[in-house]
Nucleic acid binder design. Structure first.
Lengths: 329, 329
DNA sequence: AGAACTTGTGAAATCGGTTTCATATCGTGC
DNA sequence: GCACGATATGAAACCGATTTCACAAGTTCT
């Protein structure tokens, strides 16, 4: 059924029906007629037809590097909450960390498919920059700070610094580090720099043999820990860029008689649910992922409303969660 | 830029451009002309305009009870993989376990917003049934078996049965159960029934005082364990409907000197990442969530292609993962 | 050579809405 | 009594694509 058929059934003009759904001028008696017919027929206007003329899709594109990650799904949950209240729906693209899919999704969203875009990406390239600046629709980046664009990010540097400092303050002298790809500015580079600053500030030096780059997974954390502990130098504290990595490293420690926190303190970033129930509860830095999603969505909403090109940056702070893994007396 | 402007620039007719994008008859020379102009202008046809006429949205609606759950995000990942290959995108709705949002999303998708729907819901009501049977677009239910509709589900009964039997075979005599809402047929009722069958079959009886219904969370598992262990009767094995619940219960055990597996064996369903790194690695039943998502997507694809109303049911089997929590000698 | 297909083509109708526009009615201030 | 703004209305133009249709040209089969 289309709008003209429905208008005829209701006994009003096509324009009246359109106005009913779009808050235009409309007399109460027609409104009643339409509502009665609506009850009877269950008519719903077509979104696409509406979009052709009005250019409004009520869709927001969300580009994610993966789905089955606690942090990312929390961000997405926050985005959905805020946008849902405003009647927007999420068009989700999972790029599976595939660079090309990220680019092609941006390309797809660039023109007319959605009213706005929220991008969660780990690594940014020049191609990203050029594509992002050609965007016709408002865009917000969550989780990374990228000059010249709307961003909601975390204080990754501070988080890593504070967690490392916590361990050094408890007397550790041989700090180790397992991080992620430094091309990922937030989780890779900034957390590394935060670690390094804390170490240097404590009058110690960063030992390259006690530093490793892992992937975002437990298995990779296990692997890097294994290599590190096979060397001559033994660390007495370990900072990991993510909880997953830490949990893998701890698995190795457990299997090899390395006692936490006595032989080795462990601290990480992310405060995942898993951290609480690890065999030694994990000290971690809580980042406000869901809030980041909510704020990103709010930022996008105001950008879509205003249509202005002014970009904003919001940085969220963090909370240190101390648990047994750093509980040395 | 619209199709007529572009056609003029390319020096071909509007129809030719449309055919270029829709695999219609088209001579090679025109194809070349269009590709050259495409290179120059970056023109992209409007999805909504296309949809008005062709009725094809290339969108699939996915309705989820929550996002930040490992099992659900794995299912969604599987869905996205398969559908992405076929050029579909996901329109995601997170109902946050809100009954009304589930209904209103179905209502929204019923007509014309999407080409197909995949529904992950925990509890089905009569309203669900009536709404689902009024669906104009193909619909697949993942994770539940619902007579008369396309379903991809797990063998929840068998999973619970096997895990419980595993513990009873090792000599447990006082089995306990922490499950979820029995209105949830798959995770609630079937896992309960599977537990009960194993108990009865072993010549034991189900003690109501050793049975509890929790929510899908660690905290709730902790809480139910606390109450259960405050009673007079002490269980010697515990089956939990989910890993989260089990991890909460185990947290309580650890705090209260109940040794796993010696005092209490623990088994669950879900095989989440967390289970591997718990202070006592958790025995759990692996359900093929991602595969369920993939198969659900495949089922939807064939339903969309054929347009037929024949419904199919696919049940996926499971793997028992034995770890220390049931490792009694 | 002529019939019967297959392939290729562009003008025009069409999809289902929104928005403009010309016009009507009403209350209100002067 | 008249000008004026606010409210209300339906016909028609419009949005940007797809699809139909009538027809042309090239192939293949008798």
């Amino acid at each position: 059924m289309n709008i003209s058929e429905f208008a005829e059934i209701a006994g009003v003009s096509v324009s009246a029906v359109s106005r009913y759904f779009n808050n235009g001028y409309l007399a109460d008696d027609k409104r009643a007629l339409i509502e009665a017919a609506l009850e009877k027929t269950g008519y719903m206007p077509s979104y696409s037809a509406r979009t052709v003329r009005s250019k409004v899709t009520k869709l927001v594109g969300v580009i994610l590097p993966k789905l089955s990650s606690e942090s990312i799904s929390r961000v997405t949950e926050g985005i959905g909450e805020v946008l849902g209240e405003e009647g927007f729906e999420l068009l989700l693209v999972n790029t599976a960390n595939d660079y090309n899919r990220e680019i092609s999704s941006l390309e797809l969203f660039r023109q007319n498919r959605v009213d706005g875009v929220i991008l969660l990406a780990s690594v940014f390239t020049d191609l990203h920059r050029s594509l992002l600046s050609k965007m016709r629709v408002p865009t917000v980046i969550v989780g990374q700070q990228f000059k010249g664009f709307n961003c909601v990010c975390h204080n990754d540097f501070g988080a890593a610094y504070s967690m490392t400092k916590l361990m050094l303050d408890k007397g550790a002298k041989h700090p180790a580090f397992i991080g992620v790809n430094p091309d990922d500015i937030a989780a890779g580079r900034d957390r590394r720099l935060g670690f390094e600053k804390a170490v240097t500030e404590a009058g110690l030096s960063v030992d390259p043999k006690l530093c490793a780059i892992a992937k975002f997974s437990m298995d990779s954390g296990y692997d890097k820990a294994k290599r590190m502990f096979s060397g001559r130098k033994r660390p007495d504290c370990l900072f990991c860029a993510t909880d997953s990595i830490a949990s893998g490293a701890m698995l190795y420690c457990r299997e090899n008689g390395i006692t936490i926190p006595d032989d080795l303190m462990v601290g990480a970033v992310g405060d995942s649910r898993m951290g609480r129930v690890l065999y030694v509860p994990l000290s971690s830095v809580h980042l406000h992922y869901k809030t980041a999603g909510r704020e990103g969505a709010n930022m996008l909403l105001s950008a879509m409303k205003s249509g202005s090109d002014v970009h904003r940056v919001m940085q969220l702070e963090y909370d240190i969660i101390e648990r047994e893994s750093t509980n040395r007396v």
